[in-house]
Design a protein around this nucleic acid. Structure first.
Lengths: 208, 208
DNA sequence: CAGCATCCGCTTTGATACTG
DNA sequence: CAGTATCAAAGCGGATGCTG
């Protein structure tokens, strides 16, 4: 990207991370941790491969990421956020918060990746009864299951199946999100295609 | 900008405000309040006028800004942030914070506008002795003076000359910023071209 | 297969000129 | 003042090819 040529902190930030795809690459590294080139591409559907290579170079040059050889026996290079790159997390959080209302419009051709939802869900849920025993909810939507766990009154999310879920939600991402956000009641969510499993009262405990 | 086509809140935010110039237009409206087309152009040196017109249309369509006729006798239209647009302020703040370290590099051809600095300076200064009598500092840099005032222990900034400043700093923006950020001592700031006026001990009171 | 580089058609941007 | 019109240059998306 051409520099804006402004002596302004906001413009200088955008000089570095304002390019198309750049912040989404940072998002991938923030959500997945150190990643291979191919995994990044999988999380950025539609990016041209040369563009990904260009952006990674620029981000490395700007001190936002580093490339490193993975420890043996894995023969690949990993891309990782530097501390300066980690400092972008609050910015990603703000983008997430501002964009959340837009999630009510799901374009049919929108790609869905569970890890996009997982990392963000923790930002919007709270455990209403933190002193009650911890619970586990599994969301079955997107390309892999999402596990929501309460620990010490805070919400944690991770990918992959739960060993034992107290409740499960299965269905399209939009009504599941609507339910968790408190925009949809259980009846509306069911009508939207969500299947409830296990102890459904738990859902109320963690919805916003 | 083409949509990223991702069912992800961050990507959906960027679908709306990720275009080149878009967030800088929001910055202008956030810093200046309701503005005329020509004033926006003045705060966005280098933007092509057709592009500004395009972006304003898109932002209006996205519900981020509104255009309205100014009250008589002024015959012009004003652009103003909607509440949804105001919600972008925390995002601008994060961009500002992340970009602040980049302000140590000032490209000689970087444009300087006082209002870019003024709105942001309040984010980084604190009054260390809030119980002491309020003070006023005037910065003479950029295209117009900046007034820093302490009120009730918090820092306020505005543009335009101060009626009576307790201290003044005159010179190039970079060393003035370095001084206020605590990166430069008074001697270094002087060496960088900063002229001190009035009671310079006040500067220490408000530097980060 | 992972990790790019090259090429090509298309879209977006930047610069300038022009108009109500 | 507040834009629209035009056009060259840069950037992007998609396909393909190369290298360890």
């Amino acid at each position: 990207m051409r520099s804006y040529g402004e002596y302004c902190a906001i413009a200088k930030s955008l000089d570095v991370v304002g390019d198309r795809w750049t912040l989404l690459i940072v998002r991938e590294l923030a959500l997945r941790g150190p990643s291979r080139y191919t995994d990044l591409r999988g999380g950025l559907p539609g990016i041209a491969t040369n563009l990904l290579a260009d952006r990674l170079r620029e981000l490395e040059h700007a001190g936002v990421i580093t490339r490193e050889d993975a420890p043996p026996p894995i023969a690949t290079t990993l891309y990782r956020l530097t501390p300066r790159g980690e400092d972008l997390r609050p910015l990603l959080d703000e983008l997430f918060r501002w964009g959340l209302p837009l999630m009510t419009e799901q374009n049919p051709e929108d790609a869905v990746r569970s890890h996009w939802l997982a990392g963000a869900i923790g930002l919007m849920l709270t455990d209403r009864t933190p002193d009650a025993p911890p619970v586990t909810v599994e969301l079955r939507t997107g390309d892999q299951p999402i596990v929501i766990e309460t620990r010490d009154g805070t919400i944690h999310t991770r990918l992959g199946p739960a060993e034992s879920a107290d409740a499960t939600l299965t269905g399209p991402p939009k009504p599941i999100l609507g339910l968790l956000l408190g925009l949809l009641g259980p009846a509306d969510a069911k009508a939207g295609g969500v299947d409830f499993g296990g102890d459904t009262t738990i859902i109320e405990r963690i919805t916003a």
